Amino acid sequence: MNYPVFKEGATIGVTAPSSGVPSELHDLVKLSCSRMQSRGFGVVCGETVWTQEKAKSSPAQVRANEFNTMMNNDAIDMIIPPWGGELLIEILEYIEFEQLPSKWILGYSDVSALLLAVTLKTGLATAHGTNLVDLRGEYSDETTAMWQAILSTKTGESVLQHSSPKYQKEWTHADPSPCIYHLTEPTYWKTVSGAKTNIQGRLLGGCIDIIRHLVGTPFGDVRHFQKHFIHEDPIVWYLENCELPTTDLRRSLVQMKLAGWFEHCSGILFGRSSANRPVEGYTVEDVYQELAAELQIPIVYDIDCGHVPPQITLINGAYAEIEVDDGKGTVKQVFKP
């Protein structure tokens, strides 16, 4: 595994490999950039950030070219897209994977397809966490704010994160918060077994709505990654559901299982979700219980990951030890080569 080096005063490249930002929301990006500059970062925005048409910032080749250019620009130290979207998968065939230098890419939602593809194909660690627009607050909550400490971890070192004290149940845009999120509900991490749980292995994952579409493609070769980049270490999957009802979630998990993605898997972490709509009484807890029984592995759910903020920063490829007991959780990540 190759872990990028985070630099103090890093210059952030902002590009939109999925959705750009419509003109009426440009102020969100400008405020985000201003906040980052006030914290000592440089910021370079690409042209794709400022456009949005037909569910994408620009044509696939344009998006890919801007991403490739920023990754290979020595004046840019890391990439943080403004947010996710819907059609990032269109650019994967145009990404110059064999030429990607060692730089952090941070994001989630639709961006998780890019993160997972980069790590699986190249062994370059990528960061699943906050997006740029959600860093526009006067300050960040303690969970979100850890992104910088996580990315500052050096190869061979470790970093510890804790479950959040509270999470956000719903967005209240009419009542802006100085830290963006309205954290009102007590966080409680759960286990299928109901008992204290410890899971260890290499982290891989993202938004299941998105990364499931990498199954069977050249960008989703988990076996090759396991053999060539992580010395056959077990994998801990972290998955979060943005929009899927329980039956679609179940279908997606079965597809991943049949494709071999859960071979040599030591556990699965599921993020909180406002989706997970039951179908004819079939609940998400049923999905988790069935999967745990089939795979004979521990499953933890309602963790701080995904579209119900805040979220911890999870590094694709890092070795992690996850402990959950009585609703509280810790994630220790070791930047193991």
Results as ranks from 00 to 15, higher is better:
residue 237 W to K: 05
residue 243 E to R: 06
residue 244 L to N: 11
residue 244 L to G: 04
residue 245 P to W: 12
residue 247 T to H: 13
residue 247 T to K: 14
residue 248 D to C: 08
residue 250 R to G: 00
residue 250 R to S: 09
residue 251 R to L: 08
residue 255 Q to K: 11
residue 256 M to T: 01
residue 256 M to R: 13
residue 257 K to R: 07
residue 257 K to E: 07
residue 258 L to S: 10
residue 260 G to H: 03
residue 260 G to V: 12
residue 261 W to Q: 05
residue 261 W to E: 06
residue 261 W to C: 05
residue 261 W to A: 06
residue 262 F to W: 02
residue 263 E to M: 09
residue 263 E to R: 12
residue 264 H to Y: 07
residue 266 S to F: 06
residue 266 S to H: 10
residue 267 G to T: 10
residue 267 G to L: 08
residue 268 I to G: 09
residue 269 L to T: 02
residue 270 F to V: 03
residue 270 F to K: 03
residue 270 F to M: 08
residue 271 G to N: 12
residue 271 G to I: 10
residue 273 S to Q: 00
residue 274 S to A: 14
residue 276 N to F: 11
residue 276 N to T: 02
residue 278 P to M: 00
residue 279 V to T: 05
residue 280 E to D: 15
residue 280 E to L: 02
residue 281 G to T: 02
residue 282 Y to P: 01
residue 282 Y to E: 04
residue 283 T to F: 06
residue 286 D to T: 12
residue 286 D to V: 01
residue 287 V to N: 04
residue 287 V to D: 03
residue 288 Y to I: 07
residue 290 E to D: 07
residue 291 L to Y: 04
residue 291 L to W: 10
residue 294 E to Q: 14
residue 296 Q to G: 06
residue 297 I to M: 04
residue 298 P to W: 06
residue 299 I to R: 14
residue 300 V to E: 13
residue 300 V to Q: 08
residue 300 V to N: 14
residue 301 Y to P: 00
residue 301 Y to S: 01
residue 302 D to R: 09
residue 305 C to P: 03
residue 305 C to I: 11
residue 305 C to A: 15
residue 306 G to N: 05
residue 307 H to R: 07
residue 310 P to Q: 04
residue 310 P to N: 10
residue 310 P to G: 03
